[in-house]
Design a protein around this nucleic acid. Structure first.
Lengths: 211, 211
DNA sequence: AAAGATAGTAATTGATTACTATCTATTTTC
DNA sequence: GAAAATAGATAGTAATCAATTACTATCTTT
């Protein structure tokens, strides 16, 4: 007979973190809406009921996961732009950091998209919205700085440029989710950003035109 | 007392079409995965069981809906590009036609995204994939033509340009789904496309540079 | 107008879901 | 080292879902 090893007792906060990570891993292969508390518990080698010792309900789990994603993603992006003097270079660095983050956590964008698409305003959706807003602010700041220092076209539509930046990433992510190939996305990212950069930069430093 | 008027008997094929339209309308306000057969039936003033007279199971309903969306969207896009001599102008026309279609049927992209994100390959996902492939082919054709006639940069990365085209739309759609404002999306579309165009065009006919 | 085909209703099924009540094992605390 | 608090398992609950059944109304055909 197999001995059912009982999971180690973890303090509540630690168990919460383990839960969040389990959900993100599950979201990589399962449609977020179809992730059941039973599936989460099974993935943690825990019984379903035990989850509710640490979360009052399922929605609280989603909330914790969104918080985790927002925190990690924003930290990654901030770090990428940190210390980069050129606004355009900072944008490129952010772009690639974002794509890398997603390739490491494929479940993250699925949860974000799924949550943001939801009709009714759940707490998790509120968090996702707040993150997107923060993201857009960072971008706007960089774009304005880029205009000021002459890297970006003065007549550039800043809002449209920010929308396109985020949209470009979303498009890459969506297509990688379809193909399931996360490596390809990172390769495509630099190529796609090159076109975006050409669209917003003041002058095109096109190496082919030098010849 | 209220008289329960029994719905008119419709021939099978007509009832299938009505069903598909009901689902798309529901998808505009409901997360696609949460649309129940009961909700569909209620929206059609029908009992839940009656649906299964016309569809063998729920998945067959999704399949029918995806077929409907793919057919209508591609027809709209083809018509938009039809008779436009300039490849770049054709791309712009396609872009705006696509955005208009989405603003008329907000449920359509939600179903597409939701379906494409799904992990396992359902028949509906197969249809969605096929449509995306067809879409990409149309784009590649136009991009190559644009290069040939000198509208687009010769060294343009065609594949990346196609990815960015689709991604740009997805980004616009995603943000409109978040805000719920479909009108804003159509306004943003032209501004965002302007940047995209600048990124792929051979020369920038920037009015500001004339001065 | 009768007969057969089609399309509807109403009620029910088994499976699955989030959540809970109760008991037991493990830590922590003094 | 006993008591108290915490974290787990076990075994439920009510609600909801897709799908099915038995039956009835309506349309079409001859």
């Amino acid at each position: 007979m197999t001995t059912h090893t009982r999971p180690k007792n973890l303090p509540a906060e630690e168990r919460r973190n383990v839960t969040v990570e389990a959900v993100i891993e599950l979201a990589a292969t399962t449609n977020p809406g179809d992730i059941t508390t039973a599936a989460i518990a099974k993935h943690m080698h825990l019984t379903q009921g035990a989850l509710f010792r640490h979360f009052p309900n399922k929605e609280a789990i989603w909330q914790a996961v969104m918080k985790w994603v927002a925190k990690r993603l924003m930290a990654r992006i901030d770090k990428a732009a940190e210390g980069v003097e050129s606004p355009l270079a900072a944008m490129r660095s952010m772009f690639l950091a974002h794509v890398t983050f997603v390739s490491e956590h494929p479940g993250a964008p699925r949860m974000l998209f799924g949550e943001l698409q939801g009709a009714k305003p759940t707490p998790a959706k509120r968090l996702a919205r707040a993150m997107m807003k923060q993201y857009a602010e960072r971008l706007n700041h960089l774009i304005e700085a880029g205009k000021a220092c002459g890297e970006l076209a003065e007549d550039l539509d800043s809002q449209a440029a920010a929308t396109l930046f985020i949209g470009t990433i979303q498009g890459l992510v969506m297509q990688s989710l379809m193909s399931g190939d996360m490596e390809k996305m990172r390769a495509d990212a630099t190529r796609v950003f090159a076109i975006y950069q050409r669209g917003i930069a003041k002058t095109q430093n096109d190496p082919a035109e030098v010849a």
